[in-house]
């Protein structure tokens, strides 16, 4: 009966997006009169009992080193076993890259309906219906899950993580784990930075920055705001910035609370990647830039003058000297 939340970890630490998923799953458990439990795969250094703060009563921990690294096939089989052991009927994921790799596999394995990119709590008055993003942010759909086991993958920043006081019981769990067929030959992680898809604030630069050497003002603002940095397609295509920073139709689709666009005109392909942001700020020297139509706040002017001032004002607000 329980709601089981997949608590995703990287290098031994629980990912931030997971806290939203835990709170969301705990709320579903509350609404459906059951308990929330979590599952963690691989070795972790974090205190897993602390996940109880987000409302889960139990944490199944499969501390098998073969699970320290994501292999979709291996993870799916392991999770399916934990689902069986726990008797869970609702599975919750944070809709990040890991979830995209394993939730569909698990859906097919368990014949469990999947909502990928949920933006709200399920409506259980008539079945189990979940609202999700469709048409790249241009609409929402209400999707009914027709199966006994239901899988919901929660969009980042769609549900607020709420930390309380509980402590979860950690249950060391042993299952058979296959050896991975995919070999990881190298890994390139941007250390210490907030992953773009998980960031609550994103500062993004476009062609208006004129060149990679000018990115200092973007990074300074991002640092002051505690934001991740992103860029538009022409910027990534010109190799001013790495490809994984590209947001838009063919890059990353993000949904932060605040998106600050600097020197980006706002082509429809760009908007398709960022229109799920709660608040959009556009700063551009061209008053006719189409992005202003999709923005909540705008400033027309020279980014090279405005952005450093903005950084100072943000620092003042946050009390950073």
């Amino acid at each position: 009966m329980a709601v089981l939340i997949f608590a995703d970890q990287a290098e031994g630490h629980i990912k931030k997006a997971t806290y939203e998923a835990l709170s969301y799953g705990a709320k579903i458990a509350e609404l459906t009169g059951t308990t929330a439990e979590a599952v963690v795969l691989g070795s972790v250094s974090d205190d897993l009992g602390a996940l109880g703060q987000y409302g889960v009563k139990k944490v199944y921990h499969v501390a098998n080193e073969a699970l320290n690294h994501l292999d979709a096939q291996v993870y799916t089989k392991a999770l399916a076993e934990v689902v069986q052991q726990s008797g869970a009927t609702v599975l919750v994921f944070a809709h990040n890259l890991t979830a995209r790799a394993i939730a569909p596999r698990l859906s097919a394995r368990l014949k469990a309906g999947l909502v990928a990119g949920a933006v709200g709590l399920p409506d259980t008055t008539n079945g189990f219906v979940v609202k999700k993003n469709v048409f790249s942010g241009k609409a929402y759909a209400f999707v009914k899950l027709n199966t006994d086991i239901k899988i919901v993958s929660l969009n980042p920043n769609a549900y607020k993580a709420v930390a309380g006081t509980g402590v979860a019981e950690v249950v060391p769990t042993t299952i058979t784990v296959d050896s991975p067929k995919v070999k990881v030959t190298s890994s390139d992680k941007v250390a210490g930075e907030v992953p773009l898809t998980e960031a609550t604030v994103v500062v993004s630069g476009g062609r208006g920055l004129k060149g990679p050497e000018n990115w200092g003002i973007v990074e300074d603002l991002a640092k002051a705001m505690g934001a991740a940095t992103a860029c538009s397609r022409p910027v990534a295509d010109s190799n001013w910035r790495p490809h994984h920073e590209h947001v838009g139709q063919t890059g990353e689709a993000i949904s932060p609370n605040l998106y600050v666009a600097l020197g980006i005109s706002g082509a429809i392909q760009h908007l398709a990647g960022v229109n799920r942001s709660k608040v959009i700020v556009v700063i551009n020297k061209d008053a006719e830039a189409p992005f202003f139509k999709a923005a909540d706040y705008g400033i027309v002017g020279d980014i090279f003058e405005i952005v450093p001032k903005l950084t100072e004002e943000v620092k003042k607000l946050k009390g950073i000297a």
Partner: peptide, 25 residues
């Protein structure tokens, strides 16, 4: 495994609030 019940369009944006370049604060 799933049925699309219905759709909804996002609420229209209230419109952009412009701030003067001289008043970044």
């Amino acid at each position: 495994l799933t049925t699309y019940v219905n759709y909804e369009l996002p609420p229209a944006k209230a419109g952009v609030k412009m701030v003067s370049a001289d008043n970044v604060g």
